[in-house]
Nucleic acid binder design. Structure first.
Length: 572
RNA sequence: GCGCCCGUAGCUCAAUCGGAUAGAGCAUCGGCCUUCUAAGCCGAGGGUUGCAGGUUCGAUUCCUGCCGGGCGUACCA
């Protein structure tokens, strides 16, 4: 049940009856409490089209409005319609939501959705720049699965290419003991290999040779490569596990897995007549892409040296996702600098017939991560902050806070709470911001535990659970009626019933901050209710009603946080 | 040069097909713990939404032009 949709439908129908056919109702939650619960803003636009007085039209709309859920409606300002809902109706709906596993959310038509996220480069350890794609992608996955979709996680890791030459050449000259120690820290390994390459020309030449041998299928090189990749994957998995990310080895779709498909891709594009040779490279030129000086900009499918750039693997991946996985939708959670690349990938794929009108392949870009000096973190400078270290730091800071706030907890409780709170805060810091804007990496901002942060939401949850513990009441088996009289009760009930609206808004453009914003507001409203409305000391009927209200709040908070990949604890 | 993105309070960010008085957090200041966890609540101050026009009953939102910043722009990913 979606309050907004219900009201919108009713107002749209009333508009039609009033003579304004086809005009949108533009219903949204009231901007201010005095304007009721919802407001319809569409009348003014409709009146203009009809050449009518907007307040007059509003009166006619109200007259034919069939909305029994409304306690009252009024015309305000130039022609707004303010709608006050009936508290008894809200209470009834809330009772229904409480017994609904979907918490009021309707399941859309089931789709197969590929979510492409995280995708670290296996040559290095995961760094802070991977936090956004990983946290956002995992939230999209959880939300989509909750809505009942068939979700396919894809971790398109980089495990192939020239960069591995140096690593393999370096690996090959280490003895067994050194190999073990060196691989413990891939960051250092990468740096040592790079240092060797720039200090020793002979090594650099050997590194280039290793690339050729690797691509040629040389057994020794492949074995070294396997060793390295295996180690790197384990590093990634350890980070995912630490951060409670749902990716597993089964979700890996490494670049190298498309190697065999690339010559086939070239042949297919050639047969379709869209492949052009230019300066020795095989390209697809599309009119909509212009480079410098208005020259046509190619999508390079095969380089002049015979190598395949990521345009090729990404096209092969599109084919795989449509033809083998039968994806209705694919969401690429990849940084904004690659916007043009994906425009090209999708355009070429359409031109080649790999994508049709019905399939929705979308790049979900996110802003650059910047250093405190405002410059971009560059992947190959070798001085990045490790994601694993950020996670550890978050848990350490949370641990100090937990110990200070609640010193009587057992050590194991402190461990568990600090893990959930620390990781939650780190993820929430990313999820709660608009995806598209750049942001500056700062420990204090990212690991803040005050204000609009995960711990605030988690704390709201523990307060509710604590009430039930004190009451000695089992939340699930509690029975009784909800009665909404106090304004804080009504406000809380209203917010709880808007959970479906929040989720719907999130899936429109996969902006996780919409869900964060909803949960933060819900928590704020709950906190106010909690301060204003005594629960345990109230008379029996009120106490039961308020406990039921609390129970719905707890369920939605837990579920909502869960959809963000953030856990809850019973006490903090 | 061209293309895309961005510019909102001191800082970090919101603002749901254009809606009523642009909202939060942090920081600052003032209240609230013998009462369900103070990681909290209540309140105050803080704004020419980069600038200038335009469309509109109404613009942070749409259009045009400037200013400032970022990214991209043929063989790295």
């Amino acid at each position: 049940m979606n309050l907004k949709t219900t009201i919108d439908d009713a107002v749209t129908k009333a508009l039609r009856k009033a003579g304004a056919k086809g005009s949108p109702a533009v219903v949204k939650p009231a901007a201010r409490a005095e304007f009721g619960h919802y407001q319809a803003n569409g009348v003014m636009g409709a009146a203009k089209k009809l050449g009518m007085n907007p307040r007059e039209l509003a009166a006619r709309v109200i007259e034919s409005l069939d909305l029994p859920q409304a306690a009252s409606t009024e015309i305000a300002g130039p022609g707004f319609i303010n709608i006050h809902l009936d508290p008894a109706y809200l209470a009834e709906e809330l009772a229904r939501v409480r017994r609904d596993a979907m918490l009021g959310v309707a399941r859309p038509a089931r789709q197969t959705i590929v979510v492409d996220y995280s995708a670290p480069n296996l040559a290095k350890e995961m760094h802070i720049g991977h936090l956004r794609t990983t946290a956002i992608g995992d939230a999209i996955v959880r939300i989509s699965e909750f809505l009942g979709h068939n979700v396919i996680r894809v971790n398109h890791v980089g495990d192939w290419g020239a960069q591995f030459g140096r690593l393999l050449a370096y690996l090959d000259e280490l003895d067994a003991v050194d190999t073990t120690t060196e691989l413990k820290d891939l960051e250092k390994f990468y740096q040592h290999a790079s240092a060797r390459a720039s200090a020793d020309p002979a090594f650099a030449a050997r590194a280039r040779e290793y690339v050729v041998r690797l691509q040629g299928g040389d057994a020794r090189c492949l074995a070294l490569w396997q060793t390295f990749i295996e180690t790197s994957i384990n590093h990634c998995q350890a980070v995912y596990d630490k951060m409670d990310i749902t990716l597993t080895r089964a979700d890996l779709a490494p670049e190298s897995s498309y190697n065999d498909k690339l010559p086939v891709l070239i042949e297919d594009l050639r047969q379709k007549g869209i492949l052009v040779e230019s300066d020795g490279a095989l390209c697809v030129f599309l009119d909509e892409f212009k480079g410098k000086d208005g020259k046509p900009l190619p999508a390079i499918i095969r380089k002049s040296d015979g190598g395949y750039p990521y345009m090729a693997t990404d096209l092969a991946a599109v084919q795989h996702r449509t033809q083998t996985l039968h994806a209705d939708k694919a969401l690429y959670v990849v940084g904004a600098p690659q916007t043009l690349h994906f425009q090209q990938v999708f355009a070429v794929a359409r031109a080649a017939g790999y994508l049709d009108e019905k399939t929705d392949f979308r790049h979900l870009p996110f802003g650059n991560i910047l250093r405190p000096d405002g410059k971009m973190f560059k992947t190959r400078e070798g001085a990045d902050v490790k994601l694993s270290d950020v996670a550890d730091e978050a848990v350490t800071r949370a641990r100090e806070l937990v110990a200070a706030k609640n010193p009587d907890l057992s050590d194991s409780d402190k461990d568990e709470i600090s893990r959930v709170v620390g990781i939650g805060a780190m993820k929430y810091a990313e999820l709660s911001k608009n995806r598209t804007t750049d942001y500056i990496f700062d420990w204090n901002t990212m690991l803040s535990f005050e204000g609009n942060t995960a711990p605030y939401l988690q704390y709201a949850y523990t307060r509710i659970r604590s009430v039930f513990k004190r009451a000695g009441v089992d939340a699930d088996s509690l029975e009784g009626d909800i009665t909404l009289t106090h304004e804080n009760e009504i406000a809380l009930a209203m917010k709880l019933l808007q959970f479906p609206e929040a989720l719907e808004a999130v899936t429109e453009d996969y902006q996780s901050n919409v869900l964060c914003g909803y949960l933060y507001e819900l928590s704020g409203i709950f906190m106010a209710f909690y301060e204003q409305c005594p629960i345990l000391k109230a008379d029996d009927a009120t106490r039961t009603s308020r406990l039921l209200l609390c129970d719905v709040a707890a369920k939605i908070l837990k579920q909502g946080l869960g959809l963000l990949g953030i856990s809850t604890v019973e006490q903090m």
